[in-house]
Computed example of a mutant assay.
Amino acid sequence: MTAIALRHARVRYGPLEALHGVSLVAPSPGLTVLLGRNGSGRTTVLRALAGSVPLSKGSVVWDGINVTRVPAFERARRGLCLVPERQAVFGSLTVRENLALAARDPAPALDAYPQLVPLLERRAGTLSGGEQRMLAVSRALLARARVVLVDEPAQGMSPTVAARTYELLVALDACVVVAEQRLPPALRARPVFVYELRRGAVVFSGEATERSLRAPRG
């Protein structure tokens, strides 16, 4: 059964249309990649799936049920977790407190990212960009969500930590959708499905191994 999908989705920001009838399907379990440069619509797709931006036309379907009018907080209650590119952690709280908001036992997150252990008493807002991304992704891992949407999960991370991050996301028993500007090296040999967006429209869809994907041109 389809985990989550957009059907002919259109999104407007004032007079500008950001998505022009986008349709896509993200299966579960599995990892789906949205590729595109800034302004391509990939972040808007994630926000539309999460319910944080309304559709002007089209629908969001989750496990066969139309949830277009279901608000974002209710989608979260039903098991959807969105990790945005910015402001993905609570900067005034410590790392430990951020993890406690997702689960009582932070051990799985600390096993995934042992780099967070010496930072547990630090306020999240004082962490580097890569450390904040580790914390944000680890909170998503703890949430045990049915649908996990992550905008640029490895931003600011070293290549080794980035590869580890994608190993963790691929291993989740969930529908995982990530947005990236380019296909991460860690995914190029994996059976993941790719949608490439350009200027609010899908210009390619298929397995990552079907062809050598170049960086989106616009």
Results as ranks from 00 to 15, higher is better:
L82P: 03
A163C: 01
V147T: 02
V95D: 11
D105W: 13
R139M: 15
A107T: 15
R146D: 10
D63P: 00
S138L: 06
R123L: 13
E85F: 04
V137W: 14
R144C: 07
A140M: 04
G130T: 10
A100M: 10
T68R: 13
L141W: 13
R133A: 09
G125M: 04
R96T: 10
R104I: 04
A163V: 02
A163M: 01
V45I: 12
L93Y: 00
D105E: 14
V95F: 02
A136Y: 11
S128K: 05
S52Y: 00
A140F: 00
E152P: 02
A124K: 07
Y113K: 08
A136F: 10
L101C: 10
E167K: 10
L142Q: 03
G156M: 02
L119A: 05
G130W: 04
R164A: 03
S59W: 01
R146Q: 14
A107D: 12
A145M: 05
S59P: 10
P114I: 12
R77C: 03
R75K: 14
A163T: 11
R86Q: 14
E167V: 11
C81H: 08
G129V: 08
G125E: 09
V61A: 07
P54N: 09
Y166C: 00
R133P: 04
V70A: 05
P159K: 14
V45G: 05
A145N: 05
V67L: 12
R69E: 13
